[in-house]
Write a protein that binds this DNA or RNA. Structure first.
Lengths: 152, 152
DNA sequence: ATAGGTGCAAATGGTTTGCGAAAAC
DNA sequence: GTTTTCGCAAACCATTTGCACCTAT
């Protein structure tokens, strides 16, 4: 019963957002804070880390609010979501193909990189499969120089 | 207390596996069944789907066994794990770069593809960052022809 | 006053773990 | 007989949701 009511509420809210093409709504202090933190970080943040950083400035903010706003930001295309290792991470939206990751399986170091080959690849895949690509996640894992040498 | 004991047990088991370079152990019927199902499927399976298919042949198999063996297979390099959308999926190990995915955000269709550009990209990244790449995940999302047209 | 947002606490759902029994070596 | 694996139930943990209150229109 309450279940139904909740679902309905959220469904209706989403429809409203869709139909009215709602613009960005940093109407609340919490929402603004969260978005600021994401932008300032620049790099990938998971929900917990975002919550931690936001809590420093507003100790009363709740984790539920973090998740709700992340979902909203995603829907509005303000942030993008990536799976990095096992965690979901978020970062402020940039151009298609700008956030690609190289992770050392041994020491955990994360290197962000970009390559013109990525654009070529997108073009090729779009053409061959008659697909319009809107998102790309490229994740490479391996061993950095240091860990490679230490392995011996 | 019980917690400590459990962790210790698993820690010791892992150390033993590491040190002795344990070979494949499809010693139990359940393990063999699970591996067979993965191989026969060929494509990506998540844990639930693997459990469902395995249950058809051995209705008494448990989900815990599925997860435990998936972990084991992963450790031994028999299967690889990917994040496809929100789910973790598994497939029998092939060559580096052979499993890349293109997913339609609207209808959910999954296309598996490969491109020589992927090898080029690996080579480039390895060289530029002095990294030894052991794993690559490439995930593209967008709209397939049908959904692209229906959008209008 | 009404819609949308929040904090809190509880629910959810995928994955992991403790444990006693069974199987493998 | 010792070690490994299993099934079951309980625990875990990231995420989501119901609800009552609040806050801006």
């Amino acid at each position: 019963m309450t279940r139904i009511k909740g679902l309905l509420y959220h469904y209706v809210r989403m429809r409203i957002n869709r139909n009215h093409e709602t613009k960005i709504h940093p109407s609340t202090p919490q929402r603004k804070l969260l978005f600021d933190v994401i932008q300032e970080a620049g790099k990938h943040l998971d929900a917990k880390e975002l919550y931690r950083r936001a809590s420093e400035r507003d100790p009363s903010i709740s984790l539920a609010t973090v998740y709700r706003n992340l979902r909203l930001f995603k829907e509005q295309g303000l942030v993008d979501e990536r799976h990095l290792g096992q965690a979901r991470c978020y970062y402020a939206m940039k151009q298609l193909g700008e956030h690609q990751y190289l992770v050392c399986a041994a020491c955990g170091k994360v290197i962000e990189f970009e390559s013109p080959l990525i654009r070529k690849l997108i073009a090729e895949v779009q053409h061959k499969n008659n697909f319009f690509v809107t998102k790309i996640e490229l994740y490479l894992e391996g061993h950095c120089r240091k860990c490679k040498e230490e392995k011996k």
